Every structure is written in C-alpha cells, then in structure tokens.
Computed example of a mutant assay.
Amino acid sequence: MNPKISDFGLARSFGGNETEVNTNKVAGTLGYISPEYAIEGLYSVKSDVFSFGVMVLEIVSGKRNRGYSHSDRQLNLLGHAWRLFKEGRSQELIASSLLESCNSFEVLRSIHVGLLCVQNKPKDRPSMSAVVVMLASEGELPQPKQPGFFTERDFEEETDGSSTHQKPTSANECTISLEGR
C-alpha cells in the first residue's frame, strides 16, 4: 500500500490546447486504460478521469484492478465495487487495514466518486475539477452508471456436466489481449 501518483504516461500525446486526441496505437497501463481509448484510440481528459477512478478504488480496497477476481461472483474489481455499491454495501470494499483508522464517510464518498470516474461513457464522467469539489464537500452526489470494463465471469456446465468453461462477458462486448497478433 505505497501508492505512487504520477502522470499516466499519455500527456505527451496532447499538443497545445487539445482536449481530445485520436492516437495511432494504444499505449498505457492495462487496468487503467479507459474503454474509449482501448477500443477506438480516442484519448481525452476524461480518459485520465477513468484512470484516477480505478486508482481510487484500488487504494480504498487494497486490491489491484488488474488480475483481481472476486471469488463469490467472479467479478473484476470494478464489477465488485459496482455490485457492492448497488446493494448498499460499499463498506465491504474497504481494506481491513483502513477500517479502524479511516473516516468512514470520507472513504464511502471516495468509493462513490471513484465509481463516477469509471463510468463507461466519457460524457458521464465528471471533470477532475468536479472530482476535487466532490471529494472536498459533503453535498449530494449523482448516482453512477455501470462502469466501463465491468466484467463478470460466468461458469456454465457443459451439457454432459463433466467439465466447466469460462465465458467472460462485458458491458461493451470487447476484450483486451495481453499480446498483439
């Protein structure tokens, strides 16, 4: 739990007063890349908002987004945080090492803001200046929509019942490979 906050490595893609860039190849750290950048190569200030939201959820939970799989429901970290939020059980996401020393209102608010940041559509995500205001205030927050790259693995029995296979699903019906073709 030694977070290192720095540029997500893509700021140099922007020039001058640009707020959105269409890149020739996708670059970035898996687990933090926004859906619109991974799928369409469209990078904007809302892409960094997505990355920030992932990082907030990682810090609060003490779990890494990449490679996380919740055992009960086979959800990734974003999916797990989303389900707990929808069920009114966000406190279950908080890392046990934080429970005794944290201000629960602030941590639950951070989860809520993190989920606002990782919404699937860039237009639904707040700006970073809005994120700062949300984290520093106590006002009502908008309800988040389903996160981008929300995945749930579905284990189905084959017809003969002798084996199972894993069927990954996604809200945006896309996958990201670790290796190119």
Rank of each mutant, 00 (worst) to 15 (best):
P3K: 02
K4E: 14
K4V: 13
K4T: 14
I5V: 15
S6E: 14
F8W: 12
G9P: 15
A11W: 12
R12W: 12
S13Y: 12
S13N: 10
G16M: 13
E18A: 03
T19H: 07
E20S: 09
E20M: 11
V21R: 08
V21M: 07
T23K: 03
T23D: 08
L30I: 11
L30V: 09
G31W: 05
Y32M: 07
S34A: 15
S34H: 09
P35M: 08
Y37M: 14
Y37L: 14
Y37V: 10
A38E: 10
A38W: 01
I39T: 15
S44E: 11
S47V: 12
D48F: 10
S51E: 06
S51M: 04
F52K: 01
V54H: 05
V56M: 15
I59P: 09
I59D: 13
V60R: 01
V60Q: 10
S61A: 10
G62N: 06
S71N: 10
R73G: 04
Q74P: 03
Q74V: 03
L75Y: 08
N76L: 07
N76G: 06
L77P: 11
G79I: 03
A81M: 09
A81Q: 06
L84I: 00
E87S: 06
L93H: 06
L93N: 00
S96I: 01
S97P: 10
S101H: 07
N103A: 05
N103T: 06
E106K: 02
S110L: 08
H112N: 04
G114R: 07
V118H: 00
V118L: 06
Q119C: 05
Q119W: 02
D124G: 06
R125L: 04
P126N: 09
S129D: 14
S129H: 00
A130I: 07
V131F: 01
M134T: 02
M134Y: 03
A136V: 07
E138Q: 05
E138T: 03
G139D: 09
E140R: 00
L141E: 02
P142N: 13
P144V: 05
K145I: 05
K145V: 04
Q146S: 04
G148R: 11
R153L: 15
R153P: 00
T159A: 15
T164D: 10
H165P: 09
K167Q: 15
K167R: 15
K167D: 15
P168W: 13
P168L: 15
S170M: 12
S170C: 15
S170I: 05
A171E: 06
N172Y: 08
E173L: 14
C174A: 10
I176H: 09
G180H: 01
R181K: 07
R181N: 12
R181I: 06
